[in-house]
Amino acid sequence: MTQNTMNIRTSGLPLLDTDVLRTFVAIAECGSFTRAASQVHRTPAALSMQIKRLEETIGKLVFLRESRQVRLTTEGEILLGYSRRLLKLNEEAVQQFLSPSVTGRVSFGTTDDIGTRILPGVLAQFARSFPGVQVDVTITSSRENLDRMDSGDLDMALVIIGNEGQEARGEIIHTEPLVWAGREGGIAFEQSPIPLALANHGCIWRRAALDALDQAGRAYRIAYTCENTAAQEAAMLADLAVTPFPVSLIRPPLKKLEKEGLPPLAKYQIALVRNASSPEADVLSDHIKSAFLAMRPSAA
């Protein structure tokens, strides 16, 4: 009887309108009703009515309205995560039944940091939406991926922009800060010369770190030269070195070194480079770009 009662109560809960959730996400990311209205092609007044309806539905305020911007409340922050997931699931469901069947094979190249951290989840979602597309992945350096693109061995690749001797190619789909990282509670950064764990010559992270330290007049030694980010992490976890790292890849017990007196580093960018278009490559490209777009923090 208790279980039956629970089912009845659950089925009586209101459903969240995906159109309203899409408006909510747009406002959260734009930080403004006016900018979001332009994005979703509606008036600010219409958006305001939708948000009022949403707040009435869940019984909580989702935005703090200020003179020139809006900020998410605590409840709004929680709802934003749910909204993005619900909209993504809705898109996958529609694609499953209404999208034309896409089959084929795509050869795809990427760098170690993307291929081991970000890409597995992206490809898992893609496989559920497009089970007829086979994706073959090669993980190597940006320069090697571009060489493989030129030889026709790859259909598309994600490469890091700004490597020495690398021409600007492709569409920039992600930008984020490059920061110093080290072990939480560690002392490697206090040593002089400071020990570094860096990738091989030609890596933009390596060049950015050495240029920053040279300009700051900070003594350093290259303690580890690594082929992949896992080796750099191992050096940091052992508190044997610090390293330049994208902020999105830092996980406890590693931390961003902010007050340790190290010189700031520039942002780094990821570009999607493609060869000839095909239906299977087009859908994979769109899926990858959507995944990186979802990684961007909200404007709140």
Rank of each mutant, 00 (worst) to 15 (best):
Ala294His: 11
Leu240Asp: 09
Thr74Ser: 14
Ala223Leu: 05
Glu258Arg: 14
Arg296Ser: 07
Pro14Arg: 07
Thr140Cys: 02
Glu171Gly: 01
Arg183Cys: 11
Leu265Ile: 09
Leu21Cys: 03
Ile204Asn: 05
Arg117Asn: 14
Lys88Gln: 13
Glu176Arg: 02
Leu13Glu: 11
Gly59Val: 03
Asp211Gln: 15
Arg148His: 07
Cys203Ser: 15
Thr116Trp: 13
Ala28Glu: 10
Ile250Lys: 12
Arg218Met: 12
Gln50Met: 10
Ala28Arg: 09
Arg42Trp: 00
Ile194Asn: 05
Ser278Thr: 15
Leu249Thr: 14
Ile173Met: 03
Glu164Ala: 15
Gly152Asn: 05
Leu293Thr: 14
Ile172Gln: 14
Ile27Lys: 07
Ile204Ala: 15
Pro264Trp: 06
Arg128Lys: 05
Leu210Cys: 10
Ala26Gln: 05
Asn200Lys: 14
Ser99Tyr: 10
Lys52Pro: 01
Phe245Val: 08
Gln96Cys: 09
Gln191Val: 04
Gly152Thr: 10
Glu55Val: 06
Leu262Ala: 06
Lys259Asp: 01
Gly182Thr: 01
Ile160His: 09
Ser277Cys: 10
Pro195Ser: 04
Gln269Lys: 13
Thr175Arg: 10
Gly162Ser: 09
Ala271Asp: 10
Phe63Asn: 12
Arg85Ile: 02
Pro100Trp: 02
Arg251Val: 14
Pro252Thr: 00
Arg53Ser: 11
Thr10Gln: 14
Cys226Lys: 03
Ala234Leu: 08
Arg35Lys: 15
Gly182Gln: 06
Gly104Asn: 06
Gln125Asn: 13
Leu240Pro: 00
Thr57Ser: 12
Ser101His: 09
Thr10Leu: 15
Ser151Gln: 13
Leu213Cys: 10
Ile222Pro: 02
Val25Tyr: 04
Arg221Asn: 07
Lys259Phe: 04
Leu47Ser: 03
Ala241Gln: 11
Val247Ala: 10
Lys255Asp: 03
Gly170Thr: 10
Arg42Met: 11
Leu80Gln: 06
Met295Trp: 05
Ala281Ile: 04
Lys267Val: 07
Thr73Tyr: 09
Pro14Ala: 01
His201Ala: 14
Pro120Ser: 04
Thr116Asp: 00
Pro100Asn: 06
Lys52Ala: 14
Ile222Phe: 00
Gln50His: 05
Arg128Met: 10
Lys267Ala: 14
Glu56Leu: 13
Leu210His: 04
His201Asn: 10
Thr23Ser: 15
Thr73Arg: 12
Leu21Trp: 03
Gly121Gln: 07
Ala28Tyr: 09
Val25His: 07
Ala124Thr: 12
Gly81Ala: 00
Cys30Phe: 00
Arg206Trp: 08
Ala181Leu: 03
Gly202Asp: 02
Leu16Gln: 12
Ile187Trp: 01
Arg296Thr: 11
Pro14His: 04
Pro252Cys: 03
Tyr82Val: 09
Lys259Glu: 09
Leu198Trp: 10
Pro263Arg: 00
Arg296Phe: 01
Ile58Lys: 06
Leu61Pro: 02
Leu272Gln: 08
Val25Phe: 03
Gln215Lys: 11
Leu89Asn: 08
Pro264Glu: 05
Pro193Val: 02
Arg84Asp: 04
